[in-house]
């Protein structure tokens, strides 16, 4: 399978989206809304619930299931208020010392005049900044598309996992080919060069685990035991390790 096929597969309509993983893994889920500054972003679903016997804050970027649903979720492209809602609930998780679980699936942060003028850049930056020393464990799982900064904004985590058929990239292969050769035809060549598959990113040491997506139950067990382990780690050690994890990237 070419890397580009993985990208296309990650975008396909008949894939599980964030809500499927939330429903499967989280019990007693209660969704909360709003960023307390501007509005509520349908692209980001966030709330609290239980994973087995453990309270957890869960955040997912949701693409939607059918046309109507997809419009409501803005096709999984978040506005600044989506990232701010996520950060608000992460801060809340820190207060109550609940672990945070993020399901990432986005082609990228939304590109638009409003999104820019409400501070898309600032919103993403603030998430990276605040998550870097948040005093509670964070686990992020890329379940489909990991589209650039918009996906990174929920991936400054103690553990970054990816499904075996997900991708995470600095730029979409099409835009990259377009910038380099003024044509999107070579997107498949570029997809290889971008090192965007779970396999390659694991080899580069940029992600911590590749998850098979055959059974939700296995995933639930893996998440539960990892969060248990992280919760048992001394919090200063945890934030130091998180700093070191990203400090090493590229060197």
């Amino acid at each position: 399978m070419r890397d580009y096929d993985i990208v296309l597969g990650a975008r396909s309509d008949n894939r599980y989206t964030a809500v499927d993983y939330m429903n499967a893994v989280i019990g007693d889920f209660i969704e909360f809304h709003g960023d307390r500054y501007f509005g509520d972003d349908g692209a980001v679903i966030a709330g609290i619930g239980m994973i087995k016997d453990m309270p957890v804050t869960v955040i997912g970027i949701e693409k939607g299931k059918n046309t109507e649903d997809r419009i409501a979720h803005n096709f999984g492209s978040a506005h600044p208020e989506g990232y701010r809602k996520a950060l608000r609930l992460m801060k809340q998780a820190e207060k109550f010392h609940r672990p945070i679980l993020c399901f990432v699936d986005t082609a990228g942060a939304f590109c638009g005049v409003d999104a820019e003028e409400r501070g898309q850049g600032r919103a993403i930056a603030e998430n990276l900044y605040e998550m870097s020393d948040l005093r509670t464990p964070i686990l992020s799982i890329v379940i489909g598309e990991g589209g650039s900064g918009g996906a990174l904004a929920l991936s400054h985590a103690d553990r970054v996992w990816m499904l075996e058929d997900a991708y995470f990239s600095v730029v979409s292969p099409e835009s990259c080919a377009n910038i380099l050769w003024k044509s999107t035809e070579k997107a498949d060549v570029v997809a290889d060069a971008l090192y965007l598959t779970a396999d390659k990113l694991y080899k580069l040491g940029l992600i911590d685990k590749i998850c098979s997506n055959d059974a939700f139950e296995n995933l639930e067990n893996d998440i539960y035991s990892e969060l248990k382990k992280l919760m048992a780690t001394d919090i200063d050690t945890l934030t130091d390790q998180r700093y070191e994890k990203f400090r090493r990237v590229g060197y």
Partner: peptide
């Protein structure tokens, strides 16, 4: 922006620098 020729290694510099800015701030 990020240098696409370095793939995710360049994207994750955003996280790395932001964390260092946070420590400087703290």
């Amino acid at each position: 922006g990020a240098r696409m020729q370095e793939g995710m290694l360049s994207l994750m510099q955003m996280s790395k620098v932001s964390a260092a800015v946070k420590r400087h701030n703290n």
